[in-house]
Nucleic acid binder design. Structure first.
Length: 462
RNA sequence: GGCCCCUUCAUCUAGCGGUCCAGGAUGCAAGGUUUUCAUCCUUGUCACAGGGGUUCGAGUCCCCUAGGGGUCACCA
């Protein structure tokens, strides 16, 4: 049985680094038929917010990762933590420390001045005297005084930390609330975690948590510390590097499977394979194969992946998704042709929506450079006679019908395709470039095509 | 600064001592397809951080240097 978890603190949105660790945990649990749990680390009441929790849940929902059972909120479990703190106190494995915050700060400053590593000096570790008046004590755990703490990391190998790097850290604050490293260890043990996959910014927390595990007699899980995702340029990932919030990717028109595929390949691979369906990820993912080095965020690759998944989506699905971007195609009679055209050429849903709108809606203004390039010479005459020809043609429905008219027109006038192509393009969608003209006309029909041509002609005449 | 971790093309990566004058993908460039743009196809471009060892043989093992990252709270 494999049990994993994702344990965010609800202090903000879910960012892509978090999503990746969540994905790794999810895949590993599911691959093994185990459980994937969600735990909200909200022990610091001043910093967490209900909205943040909601945003995290929303992101999970969007990418389609399901978790087992209800999310566990640490704020519901203070009594539980207290009982374990009492237990350690009773067994002499933890103790009250009456040092005030001010004293502590002073000690730290002195140590820093002496260029020493700031650490608690253990002055109350074996204290038996009268406690000072008027001080609410914190509870500290007894960390080993010498030797080293060694553990096996599934990604980085054997990690050795000298005992004097870890002091008697606080497990309960003076107001009685438990601290992070204590509750994580207690919860992971009690929730039955077998594998803890987390960011390697937690590497230094691990020895502390191991101290808690051992003091409480809990069995250690396997640890995997995954390297962080760096921003472009190798610096810490920031908002500037694409949208840091997972839901921003939805708003920007990314498909969740593209994002997941992108993230799973950041630090993990299987031979030369680039495209992974969820089924394939579930079949092959193993945290032991994660790279030990950090990787950089690469927006171009994400875009490429997204284009791939758009191409391979059904028109029905795309039509549904496009509604969020103001394009309503579900019951549009030209839905299939429209989507067939644009799913091949767009990298995001947002881009797709914009380009579909270019076809569906008349151009509001014309690209100036395009006008200059396309509307010289006899372009106006060519356009208007093409409009005449369109009006006279009957039974134009399919793109091929329009294509035939276009071909005939070019032949009759003895001109190159570009002579009509460029101006017509500007008339229909307002710019050069874009999809096949026959496709566009078949979508909007003869009447609208003619009107758009006339509109451009009038505009140019002015 | 102390401690810990990391280091193959611009980027994501393959490589687990010989099959590597280092493979794939993205990007970029060129060509082809296309009435245009995009897609697509083809070709090309580009890397073992540096220095010492170990070994018959090192991208692969060890050490040093450099660079990068992380961490040193009554935050999580």
């Amino acid at each position: 049985m494999v049990v994993t978890r994702f344990a965010p603190s609800p202090t903000g949105f879910l960012h892509i680094g978090g999503l990746r660790t969540a994905l790794f945990n999810y895949l590993w649990a599911r691959r093994n038929g185990g459980e994937f749990k969600l735990r909200i680390e909200d022990t610091d009441q001043s910093r967490n917010s209900a909205e943040a929790t909601k945003a995290i849940l929303e992101a999970f929902d969007w990418v389609g990762m399901d978790y087992d059972g209800d999310p566990v909120y640490q704020s519901d479990r203070f009594d539980l933590y207290r009982s374990y703190i009492m237990k350690l106190l009773d067994e002499g494995k933890a103790y009250y420390c009456y040092m005030s915050k001010e004293e502590l700060d002073k000690l730290r400053e002195e140590q820093m001045a002496r260029k020493e590593r700031p650490r608690y000096d253990g002055r109350y570790r074996d204290f038996t005297g009268e406690p000072p008046e008027g001080v609410d004590p914190v509870v500290r755990i007894k960390a080993p005084l010498d030797g080293e703490i060694v553990f096996e990391d599934g990604i980085k190998g054997t990690i050795t930390i000298s005992a004097d790097e870890v002091d008697d850290f606080i497990i309960a604050r003076s107001d009685g609330t438990p601290t992070y490293n204590f509750v994580v260890a207690v919860d992971d043990a009690l929730m039955g975690m077998t594998d803890v996959i987390r960011g390697d910014d937690h590497l230094y927390n691990t020895p502390k948590q191991i101290i808690v595990y051992e003091a409480l007699g809990f069995k250690l899980p396997r640890f995997y510390h995954v390297p962080m995702i760096l921003g472009e340029g190798g610096k810490k990932l920031s908002k500037r590097d694409g949208a840091a919030d997972v839901m921003d990717y939805k708003r920007a028109g990314y498909l969740p499977e593209a994002l997941l595929n992108f993230l799973v390949r950041l630090g993990w691979s299987r031979g030369d394979q680039e495209i992974f369906t969820m089924e394939e990820m579930l079949e092959y993912f193993d945290p032991a194969d994660i790279n030990a080095s950090a990787s950089q965020y690469n927006p171009d690759k994400l875009l490429w992946l997204n284009a791939h998944y758009i191409k391979n989506s059904s028109n029905e699905r795309l039509a549904g998704l496009l509604e969020e971007f103001g394009v309503y195609l579900l019951s549009h009679d030209k839905r299939e042709i429209l989507l067939d055209i644009f799913k091949e050429r767009c990298k995001t849903l947002k881009e797709m929506a914009e380009q579909i709108k270019e076809v569906l809606e008349r151009p509001e203004n014309y690209d100036e450079k395009a006008i200059k390039k396309a509307m010289k010479g006899e372009a106006v005459q060519i356009l208007s006679s093409f409009a005449e020809k369109l009006k006279k043609s009957e039974d134009l429905h399919l793109p091929s019908d329009y294509h035939a008219v276009l071909e005939e027109f070019v032949k009759e006038r003895g001109i190159g395709f570009g002579k009509i192509g460029m101006p017509l393009r500007v008339a229909l969608i307002g710019r050069l470039g874009g999809p096949d003209l026959s496709d566009v006309m078949s979508v909007i029909g003869v009447k609208e095509s003619v009107e758009r041509i006339e509109r451009l002609i009038n505009q140019v005449k002015e």
